[in-house]
């Protein structure tokens, strides 16, 4: 049973597709890199998986997963950093599924939270307001929250953007640790060397799937060229999708 199954998925905004006719599936426990130029639809695809964006067409099946079994780290988290909340409390929100509206945070949960904060290398930051953290520290805090969410599917949208090499190495180790625990991880990335060394499976995206499979086979100069050439244009007067027409005529 696949962790994720895409059936002719088209995702987009206001009828204009950003990801066109994607088919395929992600096996449970897979470590998948999603690459492609800016505007290729990487973020759109991830938002579709998480359920924030409804597909224009087709469907995304989560297998046995509930949408709450997904931990999602958006590209630019809309965090209000001026809000008076401590690192400890912020990370603790990752326990939402266990605590809900009223559940107390007992000794065991406190230990878990402290453990997660230590796990991302932020010991001693527990009582700091989130507004005082640097960019890299904020990303570490977000990873700590994902750690607490204990999700079987983890979706990371360009998690290492504007992050220094030390932090990237630490956080990448966490990603591999999650993979080792049998969790399914999807990450949108730009660093092709990182993808080659650490990710077994790759989806090259350019407003539609260019190639999808084992990284070594997929990351070829030809595929990357096709992805680079993809058209970023947003045509206001685009006609209805021809692929759909062809299919309906055939039917």
């Amino acid at each position: 049973m696949a962790a994720l199954h895409f059936h002719n998925v088209t995702l987009g905004y206001d009828r204009h597709p950003a990801v066109h006719h994607l088919n395929g599936e992600v096996a449970p426990g897979a470590l998948v890199a999603v690459i492609g130029p800016n505007g290729a639809g990487k973020s759109t695809l991830l938002r579709g998986i998480v359920g924030i964006l409804k597909p224009l067409d087709g469907s995304i099946h989560l297998g046995e997963l509930d949408s709450r079994d997904i931990a999602y780290l958006p590209q630019s988290a809309e965090i209000d950093r001026s809000f008076p909340i401590s690192v400890f409390d912020f990370v603790a929100t990752g326990l939402w599924r266990a605590t809900g509206l009223f559940g107390g945070i007992g000794k065991a949960a406190r230990d878990k939270i402290l453990h997660a904060i230590a796990g991302v290398g932020l010991n001693g930051f527990e009582n700091r307001p989130i507004g005082t953290l640097s960019g890299g520290q904020t990303q570490r805090v977000l990873f700590a929250r994902v750690l607490l969410q204990d999700a079987s599917l983890i979706v990371l949208d360009e998690p290492f953007n504007a992050i220094d090499s030390k932090t990237t190495i630490d956080l990448l180790a966490l990603v591999k640790h999650w993979h080792g625990e049998g969790r399914t991880v999807l990450a949108a990335l730009h660093d092709l060397d990182m993808v080659r060394t650490h990710f077994s499976e790759t989806l090259v995206l350019a407003r539609g799937p260019v190639a999808w499979g084992p990284t070594a086979e997929v990351l070829t100069p030809e595929n990357l060229m096709v992805a680079m050439r993809m058209c970023e244009a947003f045509d206001d007067s685009a006609a209805a999708c021809a692929a759909d027409d062809a299919r309906s005529r055939a039917a």
Binding site: I52, R68, I70, Y72, P74, F90, T93, W96, L101
Partner: peptide, 23 residues
């Protein structure tokens, strides 16, 4: 008291709350 937690989380990180809860 009932809505305190979702209210706080929605104020700090609305997208996160949307992914974990409909509250």
């Amino acid at each position: 008291a009932v809505i305190y937690r979702p209210l706080v989380i929605e104020s700090v990180d609305p997208l996160f709350l949307r992914t974990v809860s409909r509250a």
